[in-house]
Computed example of a mutant assay.
Amino acid sequence: MPLEPFHDSSPLTLGVELELQLLSSHDYNLAPYAPDMLRLMHKESVPGSVVPEMTSSMIEISTDVCHSASEVHAQLAQTRDALVRSADKLNIAVAGGGTHPFQLWHQQRIYDKPRFQELSALYGYLSKQFTIFGQHVHIGCPSADAALVMLHRMSRYIPHFIALSASSPFVQSQDTAFDSARLNSVFAFPLSGRAPCVLRWSEFEQYFEKMTATGVVKSMKDFYWDIRPKPEFGTIEVRVFDTPLTIERAAALAGYVQALAAWFLDTEPFTPQEDDYLVYTYNRFQACRFGLQAVYVDPATGQHMPLAEHIARTMDAIAPQAERLGAAKVLQTLRSDVQAGSNDARWLRDRQREEQLLAEVSRQASLRFRGTAA
């Protein structure tokens, strides 16, 4: 299958996808209610889409094309409220979070959809272990070449996105000591990681042709990269975020991506190069393992600094773009969390420390998603 042409899109437009947990209200374990939820949600009028995911205890919601973080929030709120109404009818709950704290992967069911069944046949148990939950953010790009340059500029900030969104400290009832354990499951797939450092679309087309000629790749969906181009949308898609516990944080993260992208277009702060990736895997590991307490290595200088300091410096640099895009308030919220060393992984650990019961942690997470105080 040839690579699709890169379609036109308005620069800096946004689209957000959230993968969500479906929980039994009896024990707050994952429950295979996706078919019932989809049936009810098809009767609701909501922006974007509501679709199944790999296993039947998951559901994915998305926005339409948005122009600001506030628009993302408004659309997600409308869909969230419809999800809550549908879940109440089924006597189940919906929650965010990058992993479910105590589900057992072997108990999950692959959703009955041809692509998911094909992936299950190919990847075996990894498919059920892919019962993990992420947020994807699309950002509109002015051209195909500009999309590749933006993708590789954005790659320096992957540790920011991981640490700010981290919400997966628990796996199969164990504290993993990672803030984002979810990404360890993604890394198991053979075509995960980083995109090749090419800056012209013609070169990327050549790369794609070589990959399809091997028979390993049939479409862009086969790449599980941290950031990948989406030519059919005219965007790049950032894929490393854990699903936050609230739609407010999801919208704030989208606003951060948008402000960063605007800064890239306004200032062209650096030209990406292959050497940027010398410390990429190390920086990504640090953010997954330690969250906002991670160390960041600047790929340009080799300087080591606290990741929180690098995030703060970046927020200072992009403040004019955030103001222009109406994202100043959400960036200030994120900055306050960075200063406090607070993310969703810390919230989940704090709840477990207080409650000593992961089912109760999941129950409170579901209340937080619906906007109700625990």
Score class of each variant (00 low, 15 high):
E4W: 07
H7Q: 15
H7M: 14
L12P: 09
T13W: 09
T13Q: 10
L18D: 07
Q21E: 00
L23I: 03
H26Y: 12
Y28H: 05
P32H: 08
P32K: 03
T55E: 02
S57C: 13
I59K: 03
C66M: 05
H67G: 14
A74G: 11
A74E: 13
Q78S: 10
L83G: 03
V84C: 10
V94L: 11
G97E: 03
T99I: 07
T99C: 09
F102P: 01
W105F: 15
I110L: 08
I110M: 04
I110W: 08
R115T: 10
R115G: 08
Y123A: 02
G124C: 05
Y125P: 01
K128G: 01
I132E: 03
G134Q: 02
G134A: 08
H138A: 00
G140I: 06
G140L: 02
M150L: 15
M150E: 08
H152F: 07
Y157E: 00
I158F: 04
H160L: 00
H160N: 08
F161T: 06
I162G: 03
A177G: 05
D179E: 15
L183M: 12
S185V: 15
S185F: 15
V186D: 00
F187M: 15
A188N: 13
G193I: 11
V198E: 06
R200E: 15
S202T: 15
Y207T: 15
F208Q: 03
T212R: 06
F223Y: 14
R228W: 10
P229H: 07
E237D: 07
V240P: 02
F241I: 09
D242V: 14
L245Q: 03
E248T: 13
A252Q: 01
A261K: 02
A262D: 10
L265E: 15
D266I: 00
E268Y: 10
D276W: 07
F285K: 08
Q286N: 12
F290D: 11
V295K: 09
Y296W: 10
V297S: 06
A300R: 10
Q303Y: 10
H304L: 12
M305I: 01
M305N: 06
T314E: 12
A317Q: 12
I318D: 01
E323S: 13
L325P: 08
G326V: 05
A327Q: 05
A328Q: 10
L331H: 06
L334N: 03
D337G: 12
A340F: 04
G341Y: 02
N343S: 05
W347I: 09
L348C: 00
V361R: 00
R368P: 04
G371S: 10
